[in-house]
């Protein structure tokens, strides 16, 4: 088409002739797809809220949040959620103690020390680790980590919090390593050069300039990993067992909030009863905790993006 004819077409064609149906259909289709996840989230919140509400008509919030016995299925029933929260905290804390230092160290190695070649091999492997189904990790804990621990601590129970913490730590480690690596790699090269030009060693540049500069991204990765550890289900159910227990050691079987949900979902409680409603109220608590952590990490990340534009 020559320029002349093209311009002629343009000039005669500026009036709206018909609705562009294909355009409209595509737009609506895409919008609907986006709506699916929003509707799902809203539905989850409604169901959790409704069942939780009727639960709290039978059990006082004080008993639920402050009680120290969780016996929902046997008489006499008791609905103190603290043992489950404690189990979750124990596993999450142990996992964080393992995953945060190793994850941050891996991130520092990858972004500051590793050659491009090493990086190109290690990063995909880390991302591969993140894709392994969690039930496989649970099995790994039960059949490998626990026997290993038994060799070191003969008193340890078959199901124990330590094994759960270790395996969850291993699971969230790649997340911390890759997200922190991204945060550190985003620190401008000119900052490193400025520091080196003052006669700093690599170690000084890394610990005193690069990590502080990327700190908000690093912190966000910690929070996301902790939120993931709190929500982790299959691995802890398999490794740490199903005994609601405010245990002060890592060597006993405990039950996390998620593990409890698995137990009930497998059919231990008749639908409609109060035991069944506990499912929703525990899930609701879990939802709120992870939501807060995720929002917090988003906030931190946003602050960090403002600094380096």
């Amino acid at each position: 088409m020559t320029t002349d004819t093209y311009q002629a077409v343009q000039a005669s064609n500026i009036n709206k002739r018909s609705t562009r149906w294909a355009e409209f259909l595509i737009q609506s289709g895409l919008g609907l797809c986006a709506l699916v996840s929003i509707i799902t989230t809203i539905a989850i919140i409604i169901i959790l809220g409704k069942e939780g509400f009727s639960f709290f008509q039978h059990v006082s919030p004080a008993e639920f949040f402050l009680g120290t016995r969780w016996v929902p299925l046997l008489e006499p029933q008791s609905f103190g959620v603290l043992p489950l929260v404690w189990g979750t905290l124990l596993v999450t804390f142990g996992a964080a103690v393992i995953a945060i230092p190793i994850g941050l160290a891996s991130a520092i190695y990858l972004s500051e020390y590793a050659s491009d070649r090493v990086r190109s091999i290690v990063k995909p492997i880390l991302e591969l680790l993140a894709g392994i189904p969690t039930v496989v990790y649970g099995f790994f804990a039960l059949t490998f980590i626990t026997p290993l621990l038994k060799g070191i601590f003969p008193d340890i129970q078959v199901f124990n919090a330590l094994s759960g913490a270790i395996v969850v730590g291993i699971m969230v480690l790649p997340m911390i390593a890759t997200l922190s690596d991204n945060a550190l790699s985003a620190v401008p090269q000119t900052l490193r050069q400025g520091a080196y030009a003052l006669g700093a060693t690599s170690y000084e540049v890394t610990t005193q300039v690069v990590v502080p500069a990327g700190l908000s991204g690093v912190m966000a990765s910690f929070l996301l990993a902790i939120s993931r550890a709190i929500g982790e289900t299959m691995a802890v159910t398999l490794a740490a067992g199903a005994t609601p227990n405010i245990s002060l050691t890592f060597f006993e079987s405990i039950q996390t909030m998620t593990a409890y949900i698995v137990q009930i979902s497998l059919g231990d409680a008749p639908a409609g009863g109060i035991a069944y409603q506990t499912l929703f109220v525990v899930a609701g608590l879990l939802f709120v905790i992870t939501l807060i952590l995720n929002v917090l990490s988003q906030k931190i990340l946003m602050r960090y993006q403002e600094v380096y534009d």
């Binding site: 000119t190 050069q193 520091a195 030009a197 006669g199 700093a200």
Partner: peptide, 29 residues
């Protein structure tokens, strides 16, 4: 680099306080 310093094309202060920017180099040395 301790004897031969350098100033770059684009200003590259550390995301620290003004004071710490100046004190950092002597501090580590």
């Amino acid at each position: 680099r301790r004897c031969i310093g350098m100033v770059f094309q684009k200003p590259n202060p550390f995301p620290k306080s003004i004071y710490k920017n100046v004190a950092w180099g002597p501090g580590i040395n």
